[in-house]
């Protein structure tokens, strides 16, 4: 497919849109704080300026709640999109997303143990992230061990193992929700399963940000090899790429990044599946271009989705996953019908 959009201008435009989106994500919300104040508080927060004592409450909302939350939304959106690209190349399957490897449902077990039973209470506010990440890593080891054969990780085995593990972990989570006390904790568990950034603060940004940046750097440096792998294992080998080694790398990178992202945001669906496809419709299949654009697109999308999730029915917060689906599905179908796009051999 000829590329309908040039990559560099698109990436620059998306970066500008992302900056604007972060501002909107910070300025808009239930508490009406005017744009001039928001900008001033942001300036104060970024440069260490001063504010008046009577502004502390509004400043806290802007600098301690909304802005880190918008930044985290961008990080999570970028991360899920990049991981989606990696996983689709890893299992060579159009329907793959960051969750097909079973990692997120593994993370859910840990997260729900904290939410429902107060496990790891000694870790305080960190308990949820730590438990989610640790159980994601445990899930990764289990999936890897079960999927591995003498020929390395084959795409089909990975998908099947990941899917089987997904059901296993989901069963454990469901059992936990059923046996736990009803009420608010079950609601929190539900919220987490559908994804939410309501727990965001500056504390969660650095780790998730670092994990996503590291994963994205590795993927960008592997873009040429990802192209070769997409053509098939034999072709990859003939082009000097060891397909088994590359798949091992991708599995570890994707699983670790999924664990870090899911630990701070829950299991936000749709982004990791659809953003890579939407990006390919815009710039074609070359992973160098896809990996330059998809994270920006995912970041913009999730900042707006999160903003909507907290203002649409304020003060009640909607699960992010609901809104990604409501916005994403029609956009995606429209894009798919307008462009001649092939993925999966069909039309």
């Amino acid at each position: 497919m000829a590329r309908p959009v040039r990559t560099l201008p698109l990436a620059v435009a998306l970066a500008a849109v992302l900056a604007g989106s972060l501002l909107c994500g910070t300025a808009l919300g239930a508490a009406g704080i005017g744009w001039p104040q928001v900008l001033r508080y942001l300036g104060a927060g970024l440069t260490g300026g001063t504010i008046r004592p009577d502004e502390v409450a509004a400043y806290t909302i802007v600098w301690e709640l909304r802005f880190p939350r918008a930044v985290l939304a961008a990080v999570v959106g970028a991360g899920l999109s990049a991981i989606g690209v990696a996983v689709q190349a890893l299992v060579r399957n159009a329907l793959a997303d960051p969750f097909v490897l079973g990692i997120s449902s593994g993370a859910a077990v840990g997260a729900n143990a904290v939410l429902l039973f107060g496990t790891l209470a000694a870790l305080g506010v960190w308990a949820l992230s730590v438990a989610a990440f640790a159980s994601a890593l445990l899930a990764m080891v289990l999936v890897y061990a079960a999927a591995r054969t003498a020929h390395g990780l084959t795409p089909m085995r990975l998908v099947l193992t990941g899917t089987a593990m997904y059901y296993g972990f989901s069963a454990i989570t469901t059992l936990m929700v059923f046996t736990a006390d009803r009420g608010e904790s079950a609601r929190s568990a539900m919220m987490w399963l559908l994804g939410s950034l309501s727990g965001a603060g500056w504390g969660s940004v650095p780790i998730a940000g670092l994990a996503v940046a590291a994963a994205l750097t590795h993927l960008l440096l592997s873009a040429g090899r990802l192209n070769a792998l997409a053509m098939g294992d034999e072709t990859a080998a003939a082009l000097g790429v060891d397909p088994e080694r590359l798949r091992r790398e991708l599995f570890v990178v994707a699983a670790a990044a999924t664990g870090a992202v899911v630990a701070v945001s829950g299991a936000i669906g749709f982004v990791g599946l659809m953003v890579p496809h939407a990006t390919r419709m815009l710039v074609g299949a070359d992973h160098r271009r896809v990996l330059a654009v998809a994270p920006l697109l995912g970041a913009v999308l999730l900042v707006w989705v999160d903003l909507l999730s907290r203002v649409l029915m304020a003060p009640v917060e909607l699960p992010v996953g609901v809104i990604t689906a409501v916005i994403g599905v029609p956009c995606f179908v429209l894009l798919m019908r307008r462009r001649r796009y092939t993925f999966g051999g069909g039309a």
């Binding site: 497919m1 000829a2 590329r3 060579r92 399957n93 159009a94 040429g224 192209n227 070769a228 997409a230 053509m231 098939g232 034999e234 072709t235 080998a237 003939a238 082009l239 390919r280 074609g284 299949a285 070359d286 796009y341 092939t342 993925f343 999966g344 051999g345």
Partner: peptide
């Protein structure tokens, strides 16, 4: 080498395939 491979699901252009 030109392996005997079923091919790809990814929608590369011919130029992108050659660039590999």
């Amino acid at each position: 080498a030109l392996p005997q491979e079923a091919g790809t699901d990814f929608d590369f252009t011919a130029a992108e395939v050659v660039a590999m």
